[in-house]
Design a protein around this nucleic acid. Structure first.
Length: 595
RNA sequence: GCCGACAUAGCUCAAUGGCAGAGCAGCGCAUUCGUAAUGCGCAGGUUAUGGGUUCAAGUCCCAUUGUCGGCUCCA
C-alpha cells in the first residue's frame, strides 16, 4: 500500500547517516527482489529498482501481470536468497563489456541505461547467479536483510514516460529490525483507519456520485458545517489583515484566457468551450484573470497599493480519470485564493504578511510542523524566464529576506521556479508524520505584463505592479481531506460539526434534555439529542464513534440536583456539573479555538 | 489517459454456472435501563449500466461508467 503523493512522506526524522544506511539497505533488498523474480520468471526483463521514501520498488517487463500469489512466491524466494547469504560483490568493467553481458542476457532496458552513461567504466553488482548494473553501494551480503515485505504491484511507464512501455512495478519496504517493519505496517494501518474517504462516509461529511460525474463533491450538512466554520474564520482573518473579499464569475470568454495565456499553456486542464450566442466561454480553472480585470477597471495610484483581494473561488480543472482521489484530487474545487498587487518596494513586507497569516492559520488548525521550499531561478539559464533580471533579483531577495525576518528555515530549490516568478511552498506535517502540500506563495511577473497592468507612480509615470498569487489552505476540498486525516475525524470543538450530544437515560428525562439542548443551541453551540429508545451504553458508544466532543448524560440524579453529567470524547466521564458551568466551559473552548 | 484489481441491501461482506444471504444501520413491539452494542420481529435487491454466450449468469465474454493501487499531473 503506497499512498498518494500529497501525503506520501512518512517522516521518521532519521539522522543523515541512518538515512544513507537505510537507503543502501533498501536498495539491496530491491536487488534481492529482482533476483527472486528472475529465478521464478526467467523471461522477465529488468528495468530499474531504487530505494524510495518508505521502501523500494523494482520495475519489470513481463507479458502477464504479477498476481498476489506471485507476490507471495517472490517473497518466499527472497527469504531463501537471504538465507543463502550470498556475498554482494562490486565489479568494475568497461562499458563494452557491460553491453556484451546485458546483450547476452537480453536485458534491453539495462542496455538503454548503459547508452546514457558517459563513463567508460561502469559498476556491476553480483550476488550468486544474479548481476545488475548499479552504482551502489550495497550491503556486503544478502543475509544482512532482516525484515522486508512486498506491498503491491502497479503499472509504471519506463522512465515515467507515457509514450514508452508500461512496466510492472513491485513495491516493498524493508527495515533493519522486524519491530521497525511492524511499526511501519502499523502506520499504514493507522493511515487507512484515518482515510478521509472512509471517515467521510462514516461521519456523513460528504459524498461523490458516479451518476453525476466523477471528481465532483457533495458536502453533506456535517461536512458543510466544518467548511462554513473554516470559511468564516478564513474571511475574518483576511479582513483583519487588510484583505478585501471579492467574488467573480465561473465562466469567461475564450479571449480572456488567450490574453492570460491559459488557453496556450493550460488548455489540457480546461474544459471544452460552452457556446453562448456563438461566442465561446470557458469554465475558469483559475481566478487570477478575473481579479486582474477588476484591477484594470480603473486607474490605480501608487497610493492604492498594495491591493489584497481574496476569494473563495470555485474552479474547474480537467483531471485524468486515473488520478481522481476522494476529496484530495477532484475536478471542481474551491481555492482559498488571493492576489496581491504590489509595488516592487512592497514585495518583502507583503510576503512577510502572507507568511505570518499562513503561520497563524496552520497553527489554528493544529499544524505545527512544516518544511519550507524556496523555488528560485536556474542561474545558468536565465533567459527562459519572464521579467527582467533586476526584478527577479529583487523578488528572490525579497523572499529570502522575508523568510529570514520571520526566522523560518527553508530549502533553496535552485531552478525549481516557474517561468513567471519565484515561489515559496510549504509542506505541513500531520499527526502521523505525513507531509501535505500546504500554503504556496507565488510571485508573478508574467500576468501583469500580459494584461499591461499599471499604476501611476509618485513621478506621475506609469509603473508595472508585481502580482503575488497565494493560497493558505489550498482548496477547501483538499484541506478538508487533510484535516479529517490529521484529526482522524475527531475535530477540535470549534470545528466539530456536532459539539454536544445530549443523552437522556430514560423517557422521563427527555423534557429536561430538550431544555438543555435549547439553552446550548441559543448560546451558539451545535447540539444534537439522542432520543432513541436505547440504553445509555449504546448512546455513548454511538456518540464516541461519531467523534462528538461532549456528551451530556441526563438522568434522575442530574434532574434532582439540576446538573448534567459531562463525558468528554475519549477521556470519559468528567462528573456532574451545573448546566451553565458546562456551557461556559465549552463556549470558552470554542472561543479559544483550542486544538 | 495507461497498467492491474474491483463493483452484490444505506454500510461491511457471503453465495461450484442451478431458489441472492448474514451482521450492522433503519422501522415496529417489548424493555425505561447510569457512561463503547437489550431482546424479539419487520422491511430492505432490475447483483453498477448496456449487450452477448448458455436450458440456466451475481458468477463466463465484450463494451461503458465508477472505485481502488500505481504511472503522470496537481489546489
Amino acid at each position: 500500500m503506497t499512498l498518494g503523493k500529497e501525503r506520501a512522506l512518512f517522516m521518521s526524522n532519521p539522522s543523515p547517516a541512518d538515512q544513507v544506511d537505510l537507503e543502501v539497505y533498501r536498495h539491496s533488498t530491491a536487488h534481492i527482489l529482482a533476483q527472486a523474480v528472475k529465478r521464478l520468471f526467467p523471461d522477465v526483463k529488468l528495468a530499474i529498482g531504487p530505494a524510495i521514501e518508505n521502501g523500494f520498488y523494482y520495475d519489470f517487463e513481463k507479458a502477464t501481470p504479477f498476481t498476489p500469489e506471485d507476490l507471495d512466491k517472490i517473497e518466499k524466494e527472497m527469504k531463501k536468497i537471504i538465507g543463502e547469504d550470498l556475498p554482494i560483490v562490486r565489479e568494475e568493467v568497461s562499458k563494452e563489456e557491460a553491453v556484451r553481458l546485458f546483450q547476452d542476457q537480453g536485458e534491453k532496458y539495462k542496455l538503454e541505461l548503459l547508452e546514457d552513461i558517459p563513463d567508460d567504466v561502469v559498476s556491476l553488482y553480483r550476488q550468486g547467479e544474479f548481476v545488475d548494473l548499479c552504482r551502489g553501494p550495497h550491503l556486503p551480503s544478502t543475509g544482512r536483510v532482516k525484515a522486508f515485505k512486498l506491498l503491491n504491484v502497479a503499472g509504471a511507464y519506463w522512465r515515467g514516460d507515457e509514450k514508452r512501455e508500461m512496466l510492472q512495478r513491485i513495491y516493498g519496504t524493508a527495515f533493519p529490525r522486524e519491530s521497525e517493519l511492524e511499526a511501519y505496517l502499523k502506520t499504514l494501518e493507522e493511515a487507512a483507519r484515518r482515510d478521509h474517504r472512509k471517515l467521510g462516509k462514516e461521519l456523513d461529511l460528504f459524498s461523490l456520485h458516479e451518476e453525476a460525474g466523477a471528481g465532483l463533491v457533495y458536502w453533506h450538512p456535517k461536512g458543510a458545517t466544518v467548511r462554513r466554520i473554516i470559511e468564516d474564520f478564513w474571511r475574518s482573518e483576511h479582513i483583519k489583515r487588510g484583505y478585501d473579499i471579492v467574488y467573480s464569475p465561473h465562466i469567461a470568454r475564450r479571449d480572456l484566457w488567450e490574453i492570460s495565456g491559459h488557453w496556450g499553456w493550460y488548455r489540457e486542464n480546461m474544459y471544452s468551450p460552452i457556446d453562448i450566442d456563438g461566442v465561446e466561454y470557458l469554465l475558469k480553472p483559475m481566478n487570477c484573470p478575473f481579479h486582474i480585470l477588476m484591477y484594470k477597471s480603473r486607474t490605480r495610484s501608487y497610493r492604492d497599493l498594495p491591493i489584497r483581494w481574496a476569494e473563495l473561488g470555485t474552479v474547474y480543472r480537467y483531471e485524468r480519470s486515473g488520478v481522481l482521489h476522494g476529496l484530495q484530487r477532484v475536478r471542481g474545487f474551491t481555492q482559498d485564493d488571493a492576489h496581491l498587487f504590489v509595488r516592487p518596494d512592497q514585495l518583502e513586507d507583503e510576503i512577510v504578511g502572507v507568511i505570518d497569516l499562513m503561520q497563524f492559520m496552520m497553527k489554528s488548525f493544529g499544524y505545527t510542523d512544516y518544511l519550507i521550499e524556496l523555488s528560485v531561478r536556474d542561474p545558468r539559464n536565465k533567459e527562459k524566464y519572464a521579467g527582467s533580471d533586476e526584478v527577479w533579483d529583487l523578488a528572490e531577495s525579497a523572499l529570502v529576506r522575508a523568510l529570514e525576518r520571520v526566522g523560518l528555515t527553508y530549502t533553496r530549490m535552485e531552478g525549481e521556479a516557474k517561468f513567471y516568478g519565484p515561489a515559496i511552498d510549504v509542506k505541513v506535517r500531520d499527526a502521523i508524520g505525513r507531509a501535505w502540500q500546504g500554503p504556496t506563495i507565488q510571485v508573478d511577473f508574467n500576468l501583469p505584463e500580459r494584461f499591461d497592468l499599471e499604476y501611476t507612480g509618485e513621478d506621475n509615470a506609469p509603473h508595472r505592479p508585481v502580482m503575488i498569487h497565494r493560497t493558505v489552505l489550498g482548496s477547501m476540498e483538499r484541506f478538508f481531506a487533510g484535516l479529517i486525516e490529521h484529526y482522524a475525524g475527531a475535530f477540535p470543538v470549534w470545528l466539530a460539526p456536532v459539539q454536544v450530544r445530549i443523552l437522556p437515560i430514560a423517557e422521563r428525562h427527555i423534557n429536561k434534555a430538550k431544555e438543555i439542548q435549547n439553552d446550548l443551541t441559543v448560546a451558539g453551540l451545535r447540539v444534537e439529542i439522542d432520543l432513541r429508545n436505547e440504553k445509555i451504553g449504546y448512546k455513548v458508544r454511538d456518540a464516541e464513534l461519531q467523534r462528538i466532543p461532549y456528551m451530556l448524560v441526563i438522568g434522575d440524579k442530574e434532574i434532582e440536583n439540576d446538573e448534567v453529567s459531562v463525558r468528554c470524547r475519549r477521556r470519559g466521564d468528567l462528573g456532574r456539573m451545573k448546566p451553565d458551568e458546562v456551557k461556559e466551559r465549552i463556549l470558552a473552548e470554542v472561543a479559544s479555538k483550542s486544538v
